[in-house]
């Protein structure tokens, strides 16, 4: 049983705090959906947990099976069992999928000789064209193919916990189904725990969440079961939009200069 524990996480970019205290625990076999409007901090959460450079963490902790991840480089977080399926998988010219997975296996103390065979099996499972296996990473791949490629790598790397950052954006219905079914299968086959970050509920038709969290303005403002996703489908994020989640500031001057420097 594995456990990703995010507690009191505060982080931002260039002095501006985006995540304002996130608490979240994902265990093996569980699917958690983090939903929220644009700008609520969804992608920041996935980047900060995986360790993308450029973010400042001001407080809190992220641990996987007791190992503190904050402060570790991304590759050590990967070795600890974390995986991030990116919203926009990066093109890496001149670097192939196989050599990437082989180097990853080598560094993690696994047998790199198994990589090619396993990648072929995974390609078959999610309908990733074998011709793309030898191309430079994500180069000249469509949005759907890139997401299939992310799911393929998830299958080969067998992480304990996977963060899916808007994996449902920019792909067609067939690719969405293939990718979500593969992730769903991993939750039972290898006990994968999933943190699925999404704006839309359509991902959750194939990948059934156990827990749904609503993220708004850098905080988790509601947590519930799958029925919460159904509710969001009907209401949208209007009840959680800017200002709605927080009461209006008392005593604000209605005649104040709207262009005044707030820091003055």
């Amino acid at each position: 049983m594995s456990e990703l524990v995010i507690s009191g996480l505060r982080a931002g970019v260039s002095g501006q705090e985006i995540l304002q205290g996130i608490d979240l625990t994902v265990r093996s076999g569980e699917v958690h959906a983090v939903m929220g409007p644009n700008g609520s901090g969804k992608s920041t959460l996935s980047h900060v947990v995986m360790g993308r450079p450029g973010y400042e963490v001001s407080a809190g902790s992220v641990s996987l099976d007791g190992t503190e991840l904050l402060g570790l480089p991304a590759w050590k977080r990967a070795h600890a069992g974390l995986f991030l399926a990116m919203q926009y998988p990066t093109e890496v010219p001149g670097v192939s999928l196989f050599e990437t997975l082989e180097e990853a296996a080598l560094a993690a103390g696994r047998d790199p000789a198994e990589v090619v065979a396993r990648a072929r099996v995974e390609a078959g499972r999610i309908g990733f064209d074998e011709r793309f296996l030898t191309r430079p990473l994500n180069v000249d791949l469509s949005g759907g193919e890139r997401k299939r490629n992310e799911a393929l790598q998830l299958g080969v790397l067998e992480p304990k916990i996977a963060i899916l950052d808007e994996i449902d954006s920019g792909l067609d219905v067939d690719a969405l189904r293939a990718v979500s079914r593969r992730v769903e299968a991993a939750t039972t086959e290898t006990g994968l725990g999933v943190l699925a970050i999404t704006h839309y509920t359509r991902l959750l038709l194939e990948l059934r969440p156990d827990v749904v969290h609503v993220l708004s303005r850098g905080r988790i403002v509601r947590t519930g079961g799958p029925e919460l996703a159904d509710e969001l489908e009907k209401t949208g994020y209007a009840p959680y939009a800017d200002g709605a989640a927080e009461p209006a500031k008392a005593g604000a001057d209605p005649f104040a200069d709207p262009f005044a420097d707030p820091l003055a």
């Binding site: 995986m50 360790g51 993308r52 450079p53 480089p73 991304a74 590759w75 990967a78 070795h79 995986f83 991030l84 990116m86 998988p89 990066t90 890496v92 010219p93 001149g94 670097v95 050599e99 990437t100 997975l101 180097e103 990853a104 296996a105 560094a107 993690a108 430079p136 990473l137 790598q153 790397l157």
Partner: peptide, 21 residues
């Protein structure tokens, strides 16, 4: 970062990218 997020150490990732270039 993309290669690192797969578990490739930073120095190895740099080498792969430069070599690929």
């Amino acid at each position: 970062f993309y290669l690192e997020s797969r578990g490739v150490p930073t120095d190895v990732a740099e080498r792969l990218i430069i070599f690929g270039f």
